[in-house]
Design a protein around this nucleic acid. Structure first.
Length: 511
RNA sequence: GCGGGAAUAGCUCAGUUGAUAGAGCAUUAGCCUUCCAAGCUAAGGGUCGCGGGUUUGAGCCCCGUUUCCCGCUCCA
């Protein structure tokens, strides 16, 4: 089956069984926003717990944080998001290419400047040593004409940019006769401002309100709390701060189901280190994070590192962990060496010293940062993609979600073989005993085979079946999702058997 | 944002030339009591994405719009 078909089935499966719904569906939906259903929320919570425990419980020097989504607007100036996340863009209708309007005009300016230089070069050749460039510039009519053009355009362009006048930017492009480098046509769309950050007003009255942004990443919440955590937690470098939380980006193109959403959730850890040691730590976290992924058992060959060739303004090393989705290898996690960029920026903008006094070196410095940043929703999609399996059996087929047992939304289903002879009562007793430890489901509807199929479809790793023998000797059959094998065990053994399989220790043991 | 395709029951989809809205699965109740789906009976579930137009009459034709998918583009 084509990979694309599998993906479509996956999306349908997620809806049909209550994992993921489109947001506001009864109102025709809201683009690139999704809700997690009754099973989706369980899986998502388990993913977050797997990450949190592996970071905060397993590392003595990593602590947690939960910072607010609203933050002081200057933070986004310091981080570079205000500038980097907003561009005036224009499309050429013939070539379908998109350009930054300001870049097109800058190129036009450079072109005019080029003409002037050409005149000068020509003149230089002609006059030889006697050439007076200064005089030539001031007197040559062609140079003066171009200079005038340049100055006029530059003034007009600068004013339009400062005023944020998009219509004027388009008018400049039209007036200058700027053509698309690909199609050579002047068939342009309007200039539009794309700001990737969502803005809102804080303050009760219009005059007193100020624009604040919904955070486009959770990392800054960690950086601005660096001093608080370091001091109150008596943290010694190297140490890390972990956080799980929502972030918001007004994506121009958001697609591929929950892979790219406008509201999404990140699991980030910022690790503060001594300058000069950041690349060692970068390598260490690369390895640690890859092991975390591989421990899920979806096949090492389905993961790879993707080194960034073009680094962001803040980084001196960056790598993605990519997973082989049905639509190709895609990023699920980024590991970045962010240098001291963020903390230094916050020092500058806030005017506060953000330093660490290193007792070993007997000096203080701005720590360097190694970041691991993973999308919860991408991880969710990764697990569902990897787990979704259509199996041909001898006489029929089944759809089974091979979700690792510790992450499975429902851990066990308890099924009376028939709904009489006291079997349902025994089943209820077992659930009452185990429900504090595991997410349990009860089901007595339809044939036993059908009930097994239903549990397979939502990834329940264990089914416990009560039959007439149970009445005699207190034993039940436990049926395993992946192998469909069954084993007869005593009711008292259930907790131990299941616990051994669904505990995170099982995953951590391999990580 | 541009181009192409799509939208009918919870899911997958039929629906002829414009004339009473359908199937399979799923769901619910009952029967049957059986360790790997698809046994029997019955029931519920639809403003055919939304808005307008053409027409005696629109799920079907036309226009707009929203959402999703594919390609391009973009992507700390």
């Amino acid at each position: 089956m084509a990979q694309e078909d599998i993906f479509k089935k996956l999306v349908a499966h997620c809806k049909e069984y209550g994992f993921v719904f489109q947001s506001s569906e009864i109102y025709d939906g809201l683009g690139a926003v999704y809700d997690y259903g009754q099973l989706g929320v369980e899986l998502k919570n388990n993913i977050k717990k797997y990450w949190w425990d592996s970071m905060v419980l397993l590392h003595e020097n990593v602590v947690g944080l939960d910072s607010a989504i609203f933050m002081h607007p200057t933070i986004w100036k310091a981080s570079g998001h205000v500038d980097a996340f907003s561009d005036p863009l224009i499309d050429n209708k013939d070539s379908k290419k998109r350009y930054r309007a300001d870049v097109l005009i800058e190129e036009q300016l450079a072109k005019i400047e080029g003409k002037i230089e050409k005149e000068i070069t020509k003149a230089k050749k002609r006059f030889g040593d006697a050439f007076d460039e200064q005089q030539f510039r001031e007197t040559n009519p062609r140079v003066l004409a171009n200079k005038k053009k340049f100055d006029e355009l530059h003034t007009r362009f600068a004013k339009a940019l400062n005023d944020g006048d998009l219509d004027e930017l388009k008018q400049i492009i039209i007036d200058q006769g700027i053509v698309c480098p690909v199609s050579g046509s002047r068939n342009w769309t309007d200039v539009r401002q794309f700001n990737l950050m969502f803005a809102t007003e804080m303050g009760a009255t219009a005059e007193g309100a100020s624009t604040i942004y919904l955070r486009p990443e959770t990392a800054q919440g960690i950086f601005v709390n660096y001093l608080n955590v370091q001091k109150t937690g008596r943290m010694k470098i190297p140490f890390g701060i972990a956080q799980i939380g929502k972030a918001f980006r007004n994506e121009i193109v958001a697609r591929q189901f929950i892979f790219r959403m406008r509201e999404f959730e990140q699991m980030e850890m910022q690790f503060f280190v001594r300058p000069g040691t950041e690349l060692e730590w970068f390598e260490k976290w690369k390895e640690t994070r890859m092991n975390w992924h591989r421990a899920l058992g979806f096949g090492d060959e389905n993961y790879r590192f993707h080194e960034h060739e073009k680094l962001a303004h803040y980084a001196n090393a960056a790598v993605d962990v990519e997973y082989k989705f049905p639509f190709g290898f895609k990023e699920v996690e980024g590991i970045h060496s962010r240098t001291d960029f963020d903390l230094s920026q916050h020092e500058e903008y806030s005017g506060k010293k953000i330093r660490y006094f290193d007792p070993e070196l007997n000096e203080s410095y701005v720590p360097f940062v190694v970041e691991t940043s993973i999308g919860v929703d991408r991880m969710f999609l990764q697990i569902i993609s990897a787990a979704y399996t259509e199996e041909k059996l001898e006489k029929d087929s089944r759809i089974v979600l091979r979700i690792p047992a510790p992450l499975a939304p429902v851990k066990l289903a308890v099924l009376p073989l028939v709904k009489k002879d006291g079997l349902p009562e025994i089943a209820r007793n077992i659930i009452n005993d185990l429900k504090f430890d595991f997410n349990c489901q009860y089901d007595e509807k339809d044939s036993i085979g059908k009930r097994y199929r239903r549990q397979d479809a939502i990834g329940t790793p264990f089914c416990v079946t009560i039959d007439h023998q149970t009445i005699d000797d207190n034993t039940v059959t436990i049926r395993y999702r992946d192998t469909m094998a069954q084993k007869r065990v005593a009711i008292e053994e259930l907790r131990g058997i299941i616990d051994a399989q669904v505990s995170f220790k099982k995953l951590f043991g391999q990580a």
